[in-house]
Design a binder for these strands. Structure first.
Length: 671
DNA sequence: CACCACTCCGTTTTT
DNA sequence: CGGAGTGGTG
């Protein structure tokens, strides 16, 4: 008898979560939180503001408050967690999951942009947005501006007409600060004020095209959500009825636009708690202002305010340096961090004679620490700008130290990935002229002019791929192949993203091979993209995630043979909210950190100072600040030799100087 | 009109 | 070092 077919007893697998207790185990909140944290966690209704210093348990408060709300019988699905960065969002949601278990799935959370994306897909029709809209990343926005610049008749760019990058930056600044273009130009880009009329025309065209083509840039996600909430009563009622408890992390990094969105979301119930630290406000370049924190109590009268000042992360020595750095800030909430932790070792100020010795010092020290038992993943190297780590990356590769770089140039921004994705975007949204433009120009014999004409024809023909087959000449064959590939990818029965991508890749492969000498490496990237696509049931989600939550690593990444043991290299911006046992901060040299770029105005310098504060407060125990002197700076043509001005105010007793010399070097630097 | 080879300029941080 | 603009060629 076949045992498989016999009348075996049946064991039923329950759907996940079905049986999880609605009320998790009772927690002793008073035991696990300090009095200030507890007070904040116990808020149920009404607006609240938590001013939280670095390492003071900010995320802990948010997470415990979510648990507490659920414990008190509130439906997890009525809780909404918002932050600006993906890193913070992941951290927050992950810890909620750990603390409250299965029900955390029903808590809605993510970045402002990803939440806006989801809401707009669902309710956007009310404001003329089809659910299939395409999200433009920064590069796409620049391409569109470029395209329009020609169309609007700004072909001959005057000598000093802003570059596309700058143009997009200006538009974005206007959106994020809710100001007219004029105002931004006058105050922050006065040197381009002569082009006011042209830029305004360009902006109009940019806005109009996006609406016509179902294109949405990062800022639009927020602008249009705000519009939806303001204009469409049913949607607003639905949305604010669903999420009755709103929590916002990193509030000092939100801008006026985001504050408006929060205000709208919370308009009916005012159950909104925001958490932030004015000393860690480092996103003013995109309109963030810690005034949002200051003005929150005005926006929501009756706001309860809590302050968290006990630091649980760092030793006293690290904290003393952090306090000294922020002491010099001109504008801040008064707030003094203290800790009950041990003194610990003083931060070490390392002087080297150049860039490469700096890199080699870091590498050598890392190896030493690992010998002493500090795992690689408990160490991080932080820097102001992504390229500051180039030399170090080379040294790490030489020594075979596995690392993961965060911030800077992303996988998704490489030309070949963008190319393939552009094909997929057309399949999903045939109106997307930005992608059409890119894709058409890849065809042999098609340039700017031909692409423009074809796009115009495509609109007339309601985006029928037939248009591509009608032309003659050199490009005829290429365009036919393109049409075939797009049709094939559009018509897959049971369309699955990997399958669709495969069809597009078959078409794109020869182009890739033709275009790049290093195509084998690029093919591997595209295969990686296919693997990512396997997790998605439809193109729409895949494409949206690719733009909103792209793989967090940069292109440079060395694979570790031994699982996850990896050193982290990160921009300071990308390191926010994280912590490591040992932290290296590179380039403490005037001109690099603070960057020459920030020298011009006081505000810029202040932000650099806060940035350093953020960097320093990432360290739990060990902190190395390195400064190479005698480095030639190509930008200014000068030799950088002055230690960062932020160290000027720091009392010498707070750090331990160390100078690095070559083995066998006859002379030494004085420290 | 497309494309290649050349020169010159400017160089952050994130969704 | 890459991107943008220029000028020549096919």
């Amino acid at each position: 008898m076949n045992p498989v077919n016999s009348d075996a007893n049946v064991y039923v697998l329950k759907p996940p979560n079905a049986d999880a207790p609605v009320r998790p185990l009772a927690r002793d909140y008073a035991q696990e939180l300090n009095p200030q944290q507890l007070a904040a966690v116990e808020v149920v209704d009404g607006p609240a503001l938590v001013i939280a210093g670095a390492g003071s348990g900010k995320t802990r408060v948010l997470v415990y408050r979510v648990a507490r709300l659920i414990d008190s019988g509130i439906d997890p699905a009525s809780i909404l967690l918002l932050t600006f960065t993906r890193k913070a969002a992941q951290e927050m949601l992950g810890r909620v999951g750990l603390l409250i278990g299965p029900h955390s799935d029903r808590v809605m959370g993510g970045t402002f942009h990803s939440v806006a994306n989801q809401l707009l897909r669902r309710y956007g029709r009310a404001i003329g947005l089809e659910p299939g809209f395409t999200i433009l990343d920064r590069g796409d926005s620049e391409d569109l501006v470029n395209l329009l610049r020609v169309q609007v008749g700004l072909g001959e760019t005057g000598r000093r007409f802003p570059r596309k990058r700058t143009i997009v930056e200006i538009f974005s600044k206007a959106s994020n600060t809710l100001r007219p273009l004029d105002d931004v130009l006058l105050n922050e880009y006065a040197h381009f004020v002569d082009y006011r009329v042209e830029l305004e025309a360009l902006q109009k065209a940019y806005e109009a095209t996006k609406r016509q083509r179902q294109l949405v840039d990062y800022d639009d996600l927020l602008l249009r959500l705000r519009e939806l909430l303001a204009v469409d009563d049913p949607a607003r009622r639905m949305i604010s009825g669903t999420w009755r408890y709103i929590l916002v992390d990193e509030y000092q990094d939100t801008n006026r636009l985001q504050a408006e969105v929060v205000r709208h979301l919370a308009a009916t119930h005012e159950n909104v708690m925001v958490v932030g630290d004015d000393s860690q406000s480092i996103y003013s370049f995109r309109g963030a202002t810690f005034r949002n924190i200051m003005e929150f109590p005005d926006q929501f009268p009756g706001t309860r305010i809590f302050k968290l000042e006990e630091n649980y992360r760092s030793t006293q020595s690290v904290l003393a340096l952090a306090n000294a750095i922020i002491e010099g800030a001109t504008d801040k909430y008064s707030k003094t961090l203290f800790t009950h932790q041990q003194q610990g070792e003083r931060p070490i100020l390392v002087q080297t004679v150049g860039e490469n010795p700096q890199s080699r010092f870091v590498v050598q020290k890392i190896l030493e620490l690992r010998e002493e038992g500090v795992p690689l993943e408990n160490m991080a190297v932080l820097f102001r700008s992504s390229f500051h780590a180039f030399d170090l990356e080379v040294e790490l590769v030489k020594q075979g130290i596995p690392f993961l770089k965060r911030g800077g140039f992303k996988f998704i921004e490489t030309a070949h990935v963008k190319d393939l994705v552009a094909h997929a975007r057309i399949v999903h949204n045939p109106l997307d002229n930005v992608s059409w433009n890119r894709v058409l120009q890849l065809v042999d014999g098609v340039g700017q002019k031909r692409a423009k004409d074809l796009i115009a024809q495509l609109v007339e023909a309601e985006a029928s791929y037939e248009v591509l087959r009608q032309g003659g000449g050199r490009s005829a064959l290429g365009l036919c192949h393109l049409a075939e590939a797009l049709e094939s990818a559009s018509q897959v029965e049971d369309a699955s993203p990997p399958d669709q991508l495969q069809r597009l890749l078959n078409y794109y492969y020869p182009i890739l091979k033709e275009q790049y000498d290093d195509y084998p490496k690029r093919i591997r990237d595209l295969e990686h993209l296919m693997v990512m696509a396997e997790r998605y049931a439809n193109l729409e989600e895949f494409l949206a995630d690719l733009t909103l939550e792209p793989p967090e690593t940069s292109v440079t990444e060395v694979d570790a043979p031994g699982r996850d043991e990896r050193l982290v290299l990160s921009t300071i911006h990308s390191a926010k909210g994280l912590e490591w046992h040992c932290v290296f901060v590179l380039w403490l040299v005037d001109g690099r950190f603070p960057s020459t770029y920030a020298f011009q105005d006081e505000d810029g310098l202040e932000e650099e100072r806060r940035l350093l504060y953020v960097a320093v407060t990432r360290a739990k125990r060990l902190l190395y600040l390195t400064f190479p002197v005698q480095v030639y700076d190509k930008i200014t043509g000068t030799i950088l030799s002055k230690p960062s001005r932020f160290l000027d105010d720091v009392d010498a007793s707070l750090v331990e100087p160390l100078s690095v010399v070559e083995d066998g070097d006859a002379w030494r630097w004085q420290s």
